[in-house]
Amino acid sequence: MKTPTFTSVFARDLERFIEFKRNMGCYGASRIHYLRSFDEYCTKHQARVLNQETVVGWVEEKRAAQPGSPPSWMSYIRDFGRWMRTHSHPEAYVLSEQWRAGFHRPQPYLLSQSEITDFFAAAEHLASKTPWQWQATAFFGLMHSCGLRTCEVQRLAVENVDLERKLLNILWSKGNRSRRIPFDDQIREVLFRSDQATKSNLGPRRQAFFTTSTGAPLGNTAVGVMFNRIWDQAGLPRTEGGPRARPYSFRHHFAYANIERWMAQGQDVNAMLPYLSRYMGHASLDSTFYYVHTSPDFLKSYAQLSQPYQSLFPEVGFE
């Protein structure tokens, strides 16, 4: 893949940073788009140092140009600042986390069990001339059964899917965090069938576990388009004027379905939440409590759950 051309004083560092991210399995075009915008800003303003004035100046200009947009794109310049500190400029400015303030997550679409059943029935019989024909069930199955982010499934390399030991290695995900998570026999069978079909149709050599017809990793647009195609093929209705189902809805469902299952079993949900947080790759329990608030049945009985005890949770993880 050709490295994009930059023109500012940071050109070489930007090229090396993007190459570093590619080596980590991060191929997103969105990152390149925003870093090119930052590069153009630096060229225009003759910026010479990656300091607060330069970074915040670009962020403010970009926010003014696209008001109301989610601040996820700020992570690209924040990540670049961290990389610069580590590799070339220890004094490089890293965008403050305070820039996340004021962002309100949209209300998620809560999938019903019948919608999930109909969706995967349609995915099993998807008529497509692309690898989605055999990959769709496995791709969206990982989101549903393991609660993965869309980008985490897209970036899965072949060597990071251990079918023998039933483990996934999620490397350098959100916040540059990595984790190893287990999956069950049913998911192993779905992944195995997808892997065998890909090898049979495209050959054994590929980097990404889920791939296009040319062997390239899947793009963001393709995932959304295929989700909508399967949703429509299943005959599922689209909501008017409210939250709409999207691939990320499977991750929401994974979280609140586990919470409600623990509640129904009479388990101590306070004690279980740290495990859920670690499994889903959250930086803190604050993110996990967001899913508590999306669980309608759970919220009725546990309205005060997130109030007094967050600092008392032990550090836990999967070995």
Rank of each mutant, 00 (worst) to 15 (best):
T239S: 15
W262M: 01
G219C: 09
H33C: 14
Y291I: 08
D195G: 10
N201W: 10
L285G: 00
G215P: 00
S72R: 10
V292W: 00
I181S: 00
I32H: 01
K44T: 14
A121I: 12
T288I: 04
E91Q: 15
I116F: 10
W99G: 04
I187N: 11
A122V: 06
T211L: 00
N228H: 13
M280I: 06
P106A: 08
F192G: 11
M1E: 10
Y290A: 07
G242N: 10
G317E: 11
A303W: 12
Q113G: 08
E315F: 10
N51F: 01
N228F: 05
F103C: 04
A138H: 04
A136V: 07
M84K: 08
S112Y: 12
S128Y: 02
E53K: 08
F103S: 14
R16P: 08
T3I: 15
I230N: 08
I32F: 04
S8N: 04
T86D: 09
N270V: 13
P314I: 11
F250M: 00
H45I: 06
R206E: 06
L312E: 11
E159Y: 11
V56G: 01
F17I: 09
V292P: 03
F318N: 11
L167C: 09
W132S: 02
S96G: 06
R177W: 05
M1C: 04
L142D: 02
L218C: 07
C26Y: 15
N201G: 05
W262D: 08
M272I: 10
L95F: 04
G281K: 01
K2V: 13
R22E: 15
S145F: 05
P237A: 03
A197W: 06
F227W: 09
Y76N: 03
G175Q: 07
I116K: 03
P108E: 02
G281C: 14
E189I: 13
D39S: 08
W73Y: 13
V223E: 00
G81N: 04
P67K: 04
Y291G: 01
Y248C: 07
L50P: 00
T54S: 03
Y34D: 06
A29S: 12
Q98V: 12
Y279A: 01
F120S: 00
S37H: 14
R22S: 06
W231K: 02
Q233M: 13
G57L: 07
D195F: 07
A157D: 14
Q233F: 10
R85H: 05
F6I: 06
N51H: 06
H87I: 09
T212E: 02
Y76C: 03
P237C: 02
L202W: 06
T221S: 14
T130C: 06
N201Y: 10
V9S: 13
A197D: 05
Q46D: 15
R229M: 15
